[in-house]
C-alpha cells in the first residue's frame, strides 16, 4: 500500500453501530473506519459479534442504531441503496454458498450478466481470467459439488471478484476447510491484498493477519476491545482480554 492510498477518504464508516437479536445485544456501539486499500482483520471469540458486524456492512444483517456509510452511500431501508452497496461489495462466506445447480463458470458470470448487464462473452472472458488468477481454470465447466472445499472457496472468491467490487468482505473463509486446503485459499487472499483491494476479513488465521493486515480489531461481547497494527496486537497488546485470547489461539 502506498502512503497516498492510506491518506484517502475512508470507504467504510461505521459510527456507534448497534444490533439486537430479540433482547440479546449483539453489537454494542461499533466504531470503525476503513480506508481505501486497507486490509482489516477482525478476530475474537465465537459469539463476539464479529460475523454479525461484517454482515451489517452489506446489509445481510440490519443494524438498529448508529450509521454505516459504504462508498459514500448511507445504509437505510432504501432497497436501491442496499443493492448499490452490494454491487460494490463482494462477500465470501464460511460455507462457500456456491450455487450447486450452476457450473463454476455460470456461478461466476451470473451476477455480471444479470446485474451489471455484461454480455455473456465479456463475462466469461473475465470469468476465465479470474479462474486463472485463483488457479483453477480447468474446473470451469464442472459443478461445485465436484470440487474440493478449497477449490469451492476459490471459486467463491472469483465469483465475488467478477462483479469488480471496491470492497471484499470475508466471513471466516477458511473455517470450514480441511487443514491442507487452508493455504491455497489464504494464498489467493494474500495475492488479493497485495493487489490493493480493500478487505475486511473475519478470521482466526493469525499468520495471515501478521502477513497482510494493516489494522486488526479484537472483538469481544459485541464491542471492539482493542485495535492496532499487527505489530502492536501481537507484540504489545494493551488489554488483558486480548492477551488471554491470543495466548489461547497461539498456544499450539
Amino acid at each position: 500500500m502506498s502512503e497516498q492510498d492510506r491518506t484517502n477518504e475512508p470507504i467504510i464508516i461505521c459510527r456507534d453501530v448497534h444490533k439486537w437479536y430479540g433482547h440479546y445485544h449483539a453489537l454494542r456501539g461499533i466504531n470503525m473506519e476503513v480506508r481505501k486499500g486497507e486490509v482489516v482483520v477482525i478476530f475474537g471469540p465465537s459469539g463476539s459479534g464479529k460475523s454479525t458486524f461484517i454482515r451489517t456492512i452489506n446489509r445481510l444483517e440490519e443494524h438498529q442504531r448508529g450509521e454505516i456509510i459504504v462508498d459514500g452511500i448511507r445504509l437505510t431501508h432504501d432497497v436501491r441503496d442496499i443493492e448499490r452497496i452490494r454491487i460494490e461489495t463482494g462477500m465470501v462466506f464460511q460455507q462457500f454458498n456456491l450455487f450447486p445447480h450452476l457450473t463454476v463458470m455460470d456461478n461466476i458470470t451470473l451476477a455480471p450478466i444479470w446485474v451489471r448487464r455484461w454480455s455473456r462473452e465479456q463475462a466469461e472472458e473475465i470469468g476465465m481470467q479470474l479462474l486463472k488468477r485463483v488457479g483453477i481454470p480447468e474446473q470451469a465447466r464442472k459443478y461445485p459439488g465436484q470440487l474440493s472445499g478449497g477449490q469451492q472457496q476459490r471459486v467463491a472468491i472469483a465469483r465475488a471478484l467478477a462483479m469488480q467490487p471496491k470492497i471484499m468482505l470475508f466471513d471466516e473463509p477458511t473455517s470450514a476447510l480441511d487443514p491442507e486446503m487452508i493455504k491455497e485459499v489464504l494464498d489467493v487472499m494474500i495475492e488479493l491484498a497485495d493487489s490493493g483491494m480493500t478487505m475486511m476479513v473475519v478470521t482466526h488465521e493469525m499468520g495471515f493477519a501478521r502477513a497482510v493486515a494493516d489494522t486488526m480489531y479484537f472483538f469481544d461481547q459485541g464491542t471492539i476491545v482493542e485495535s492496532g497494527t499487527p505489530e502492536q496486537i501481537f507484540g504489545d497488546p494493551r488489554e488483558d482480554r486480548t492477551k488471554l485470547f491470543l495466548s489461547q489461539i497461539l498456544s499450539h
Binding site: 452489506n58 445481510l60 443493492e83 462477500m91 450455487f99 451470473l110 465475488a160
Partner: peptide
Amino acid sequence: PRGQYEAARALGLNTWKMMLLIILPQ
C-alpha cells in the same frame, strides 16, 4: 439453505432475480 439467499443477495441480485435464477431452480 439460507446461505443461497445470502449469496444471491450479496451479489446484488434483487428479489425476483434471486428467486428466478437461484432459489426456484433448486
